[in-house]
Structures are given as structure tokens and as C-alpha cells.
């Protein structure tokens, strides 16, 4: 497979994952703002989306309608849902020969559907429907990938893009919110204020799952443990890194070559396999997450170099 093609698949799925995550962040912000008016949830959403800087260059005030528009459909914002899906499709065109017709049509459809739906500013009352559409489109592409693509190197690169983006996203959400968890960490076992943990869990579509696993009892340690170490949770760091490791292992055995990225992934995986949430809090949650984000960024660059995405 061409290095360029591998890179195209990797980025196509990173962007798809990002569009979905962005939609979920907007959904969370909207929900919290509705149920707890007067908070500064939108500022924190912008921070999580790594878009606070770009936003402040265009707007003076953090205002709900503007933030939503900026994150949803502003093409000057490279992380907006619309930018992400356009980038995903552009990459898909680039790697058209490595995609099945089903996958190509799914991503092309998504682009056309969302581009049409996001052509004008979205009214508040239409927002839930539009965000549902964003999630649904991402699921369609993912479904086409699983149902029709050969399980070869191309599939591995697509999945690496997905899980690298997902790990990065979950770690970022936790990092922006760690101050919510920290102050009460001394009182292990006490329940957190609803709104604080709700934000975090909703942003990773984990609210119901967490409640179900913990009989509705939310603790800072419990939530952090869920998002970092729970193997059952498909957006936890451990789950994402486990997937990255296994896709890299498949590439290793298909190509018969071991690279620097393999070593990094194995180390990160081992770290999460043996880690304990108590130790993370002792070390400092922010320090742990900063380290993780650094490693994930580094791993992405290693994969790009090891598999010759660029000349």
C-alpha cells in the first residue's frame, strides 16, 4: 500500500471520529446550559475542543449561539463538524482506490447530507435533530467499514486513526475537567454534584453506562477510573490504547517489520494494564493526563514516519 494511501485512511478516520466527538461536545454543552443556566459551560467546551484561541480571534464574547455555530459549521474553524466531515471526504477521495464502494458512498453521503443540513445557521430547536444526524452519519461510515472492508493493512490504518483520535479526545475532556474531580478527591466516596460529573460522562456518551455499572453513585475516583482504566468502556484510554496496540501488532505481523511506534504503543498499553486509579490521583491527574497526551501525540508522529505517510 502507498504510504500516502495509509496516511489518507488514517486521517479520514481521525476526522470522522473528530466530527462525532465535536458533535457530542456541543450536545453536552447545550444540555448543561439548558439544565444549569448561568454557568460557563461553553468556555469549557471551547477549551476541550481546543478551539478557545481560534474562537476568541473571531468573537469577543462567549455566547451560546455563536459557540454552537463556530463548532458546528464554521469552515474557518478547522475542527468544526463541517470542516471535519469535509476533510474526511477529501481524504476519502484521495484514497478512493483503498475504499470499498460502500465506504466511499457512506462518507460521500455523509458529506452531502451534512453539508446541506449545515448550509444555514441551526435554530436551537433543531439542534438535537442535527446532532443526532451527525452521530448517525458517523455510525453509517463505521458500519460500512466493518461490513465491507478487507481486514488488511488498510483497515488497520483506518482503525489507528479512529482510536488515536478517540484516546486524545477522552484524555482532553478529562484534563479540562480535572479540577472538577480534584477538590473533592480527599473525600473519597462522597457523591459529586450532578452537573459536574454529568458533563464529563455525557461528553463521552458514558452517562448511562456508568450509572448502570455503579448503581447511579458517582464519585471522582469512580469516574476517572471508568474513563481511564475500564476495559469495557469503548471510549476509555485503556480500551483505545489496547485497540491501537492490536492494530499495530497486526501490521507488524503482516509486514514482518517492527518500528518505534510499536515500542511506544506496547509501553503505553502496559502502563494502562498495570496502572491503578489511586496511584494516578497520588501522582496528580493533570500530570498523568499531560503525560498521556504527550505520548499519544508522539505515537501519531511515529506512525506517520514509520509507515511513510509523507515523502
Amino acid at each position: 500500500m502507498l504510504g500516502k494511501t495509509a496516511g489518507g485512511l488514517f486521517w479520514m478516520f481521525r476526522y470522522l471520529e473528530r466530527s462525532e466527538n465535536m458533535g457530542r461536545l456541543i450536545e453536552t454543552g447545550f444540555r448543561i446550559a439548558l439544565t444549569h443556566p448561568g454557568g460557563d459551560e461553553w468556555q469549557s467546551v471551547l477549551q476541550t475542543a481546543a478551539a478557545a484561541q481560534a474562537y476568541s480571534e473571531t468573537y469577543d464574547e462567549v455566547e451560546q449561539a455563536q459557540v454552537i455555530d463556530f463548532l458546528l459549521r464554521d469552515t474557518d474553524n478547522p475542527s468544526s463538524v463541517l470542516s471535519c466531515i469535509a476533510n474526511a471526504r477529501q481524504n476519502a477521495r484521495l484514497v478512493r482506490t483503498a475504499l470499498t464502494r460502500e465506504v466511499w458512498e457512506a462518507v460521500n453521503d455523509s458529506y452531502m447530507v451534512l453539508k446541506a443540513r449545515l448550509a444555514r445557521q441551526i435554530r436551537e430547536r433543531d439542534l438535537p435533530e442535527v446532532l443526532g444526524l451527525v452521530r448517525q452519519q458517523a455510525a453509517l461510515v463505521r458500519g460500512a467499514l466493518h461490513g465491507s472492508m478487507l481486514r488488511n493493512d488498510g483497515f488497520d490504518f483506518a482503525r489507528l486513526g479512529t482510536f488515536l483520535e478517540r484516546a486524545d479526545n477522552t484524555a482532553r475532556i478529562l484534563d479540562v475537567k480535572y479540577y472538577v474531580l480534584l477538590p473533592s478527591v480527599t473525600q473519597v466516596g462522597t457523591s459529586l454534584d450532578n452537573v459536574q460529573w454529568e458533563t464529563i460522562l455525557r461528553a463521552v456518551s458514558g452517562k448511562r453506562a456508568y450509572s448502570w455499572l455503579n448503581q447511579g453513585k458517582a464519585t471522582p475516583v469512580g469516574i476517572a477510573d471508568f474513563l481511564i482504566f475500564d476495559q469495557r468502556m469503548p471510549r476509555s484510554l485503556k480500551f483505545a490504547v489496547g485497540k491501537i496496540r492490536s492494530n499495530l501488532r497486526q501490521l507488524e505481523s503482516e509486514y514482518g517489520e517492527t518500528h518505534a511506534c510499536h515500542e511506544t504503543a506496547e509501553r503505553m498499553d502496559r502502563h494502562l494494564q498495570t496502572g491503578r486509579i489511586e496511584a494516578v490521583f497520588d501522582e496528580g491527574l493533570h500530570e498523568f493526563l499531560s503525560g498521556f497526551l504527550f505520548d499519544i501525540g508522539n505515537l501519531g508522529r511515529q506512525i506517520e514516519a514509520d509507515y511513510r505517510f509523507h515523502g
Binding site: L2, K4, G311
Partner: peptide, 26 residues
């Protein structure tokens, strides 16, 4: 796609050992 061959651009290719070679993941 329908021939089952790679689609390359100039930037994927270079001259090496008297052949035109394409940059693959390997």
C-alpha cells in the same frame, strides 16, 4: 481501483536503482 493497481502522484514516485519506485508503507 477496477484494475486493482495503485493510483500514484508524482510525489509518490522516485528514481531508484534504474527503476521508477513508489513509496509504500514498507
Amino acid at each position: 481501483d477496477n484494475m486493482g493497481v495503485e493510483l500514484v502522484e508524482g510525489s509518490d514516485l522516485r528514481v531508484q536503482d534504474g527503476k521508477i519506485c513508489m513509496r509504500t508503507t514498507r
